[in-house]
Design a protein around this nucleic acid. Sequence first.
DNA 1: TGGCAATATCCCCATGTGGTGATATTCCTA
DNA 2: TAGGAATATCACCACATGGGGATATTGCCA
Lengths: 117, 117
Amino acid sequence: MSKGSKKSTLSLAALGAVARRFRALADPTRLALIQELMQGERTVGALHAAVGTSQANASKQLAALAAEGVLARRREGVYAYYRIADPSIHALCELVCDSLARRHQDAWAQVAQEVGA
Amino acid sequence: MSKGSKKSTLSLAALGAVARRFRALADPTRLALIQELMQGERTVGALHAAVGTSQANASKQLAALAAEGVLARRREGVYAYYRIADPSIHALCELVCDSLARRHQDAWAQVAQEVGA
DNA sequence: TGGCAATATCCCCATGTGGTGATATTCCTA
DNA sequence: TAGGAATATCACCACATGGGGATATTGCCA
């Protein structure tokens, strides 16, 4: 079980940590919250209004993202301002979006080819 | 509901697709299978032995990853060879690993600072 | 201090899903 | 063609989790 010997083989614990990070991003509501935060710091109220979910759910999902280190929270009086804490989030979402776009493009091309043939 | 006017705002459907892609990577067993496949094409038998899960579960998880476009399958007689179909997987995992490593490093630094103070 | 607004937490439910054992399917070979 | 090995599928269970309503907590202001 000593993991460090091989060059890039991760232990089960490390795989679990990576999985939890991915799981934090594996929900449309949380992605919508993150997308809103791409434009800058926002309060819980503004976020739950923009995303269209309940205040309770927005607070819960934001807390989950903050617990995973994806977001950071700042208190200012009654307001709680959330912001993106992990700069890699941008690159992650871009990578996935590009991959999905290419996949859809390929699917279209294949359909066109089949129809044309 | 039509929100496509802004430049980089994704629709709910698009967010769902991105979420499903992330969800495919949000499991330690599936990540272990992918990690094994980083070294090249493998059969289901070799993968379930290397990862340490049951044959049924390995087959199910591999099928799920293939359905999401992450993996591709090739039949050769009785054997089913799986391989990584989406090249962005490497970059995705590297990004997350680097981010987690930096986070742990920062946590250590903070502990050291608190102890030293 | 009383009241209101913003946020977090608690309880509950419905659904999704990882895992397993048993079974079906498919293909090779003797 | 019969048997066996590799893979996929099915039925099922246990559990995690997204979501909502109600409520608690906190801080501001009149």
